[in-house]
Nucleic acid binder design. Sequence first.
DNA 1: TTTTATATTTCGCTTTATCGTAAAATGACG
DNA 2: CGTCATTTTACGATAAAGCGAAATATAAAA
Lengths: 229, 229
Amino acid sequence: MVDSKKLTRSTEDYLKAIYKLEERHGAAQTSAIADVLDIAPPSVSGMIKRLSESGLLEHAPYKGVQLTDVGRRAALRMLRRHRILESYLIGQLDYDWDNVHDEAERLEHAVSDDLIERMAVALGNPRYDPHGAPIPTAFGEVEKLQLIPMTEVPSGVRGQLLMVSDQDPERLRFLASLGLKPGARFRVVTRQPFNGPMTLRLDGRAKDEIVGFELARTLGCAAVAQGDD
Amino acid sequence: MVDSKKLTRSTEDYLKAIYKLEERHGAAQTSAIADVLDIAPPSVSGMIKRLSESGLLEHAPYKGVQLTDVGRRAALRMLRRHRILESYLIGQLDYDWDNVHDEAERLEHAVSDDLIERMAVALGNPRYDPHGAPIPTAFGEVEKLQLIPMTEVPSGVRGQLLMVSDQDPERLRFLASLGLKPGARFRVVTRQPFNGPMTLRLDGRAKDEIVGFELARTLGCAAVAQGDD
DNA sequence: TTTTATATTTCGCTTTATCGTAAAATGACG
DNA sequence: CGTCATTTTACGATAAAGCGAAATATAAAA
C-alpha cells in the first residue's frame, strides 16, 4: 500500500501500457494488455493480481482493470521519464527522432528522478516531446490532448499534425520524408472512400503528398480554422 | 565464446570488480571478490564457474581468476561507461563530484554504446574522469597510471594529487573542503611516524592542512620534481 | 432460455539468475 | 604431517516472470 516499494522493469511496463489503454478506451482488458506487451493472457492475469495486491490498480474480475491514484502516478512518472529522455537525447545529444525510442525505453527504468529533473531543466522544461506527446509534470499532471486521426479531417479542410507514435523508426523516417513532423500544417485535398489514401498539401510545399489510410489513422491532428494560429 | 551474449547486471559488476583487483594485485582471489561485492564466497565460486564457462575468465581452482581478453574488454567497457557517465553528469548536468557515483553505477548497465560515444563527443573525448581516473578508449585501451599513495610522498617533497576514489560522497566532500581535488599540488610539510597524520601545504593556500593516514593512503599521487609542470 | 463462442482466470510447472548454508576438498606452512 | 584458512561442491531457497491446459465466467446467438 505504501507507495515507496520500488517497481520492477515489467511492472513499470505494465503500468505504462495500462495507462495508455485506459486513456484510449476508458479501461484495460486483459487481452488488450497481453496484446500490447506481447505476453500470454494468463501471465497478464497473474501480473494483474500482483499489481492490484500492491494497490496499483483495481481489478474487476472478467471486466478489466483501472489504475488507482498511486498506479496512475507511477505510470505518469514513467511517461514523463520516457518523454524527457527522448527530448534530451534529441535536443542535447544529437539523436534523431526515429532512433530515440529504444534508448529511452531502457533508460526510463534506470535513471533517478533527480537526473530527469536536471534534464528537464537543461531543456527548459518542455511541455511536449519531439513526437508531439505532452510531457507529464513532475507532479503527475498531463495535458489531455483532443486529437483526431488525420483520416477524420474532412476534405478541403486545413489541419495541423500534432502527434505521432514514437515506436517505429522506419515509419518515422518515412513521415519525415513527407514533411510530416509535429506542427506541420496542411490542407486535405482529396480523400478516397473505402479507407483509401488521402492527398495532402503541406504548407510551404509545392507538391501534394499521398498518405495511406493505415498510416494517416495513426497521426494525431487538429482541424485548423482559417487564419487560426 | 562468442562475445555477443549480453551480460547481466551482476556479471558486469563481477567483471569490474575482478578487473580492479587484478589491476592492484595481479590476480583476484575468490574471497577478495566476495569481499568487494559483499557476497558469500560460495556464491562467488558459482559465478566464477559461469563466467569461466562463458570464456570471460580463466580459473585456476583454489588459486584465483584472470580475465581473458574478452573478459577484460567487457570490464574496460564498463569502466569507460562509468567514467564517461560521471564526467557527463558533472560536465553537462550540474552534478557534483560527490553524488555521481550511484547514478553512474545504475546507468552504466542501461545505456547503449552509442549513447556513451555521444556523451564522450559532447565532452570532447576526455581522458580522465572528474576523480582523476583514466577513461578507457572505446577500443579498450587504458592508460596505466603509476601512482603512489600520498602516504609515500616523502617529507619535504612536492607532490600532485591525481586520483581519488569516487565511492564515498562524504569523503569526497571532505576532500573538497581541504582543497584536495585531482590536479592539486602540495608539499609534504611533516609526516608523523606510526601511521600518523601528515601535514600538507597546498599551492595557493596560506595554511597547512592535516590529513589522516587512512585517508591519505587512498589518495593517488605523483611526486613532482621542482619546476616540473 | 439454452447453446455457443469468447475472454478470463486458476492451476501447476518451468525458466533464469542469483544467493546462501553446511560440509568436503585443497593448499600453505610450521 | 597435521592444522588452519581458503575454496569448492552439493543442495536448497528465493524472486520475478512466463507458459499451456483446463475450468469458469460473460456475452452473443439461436
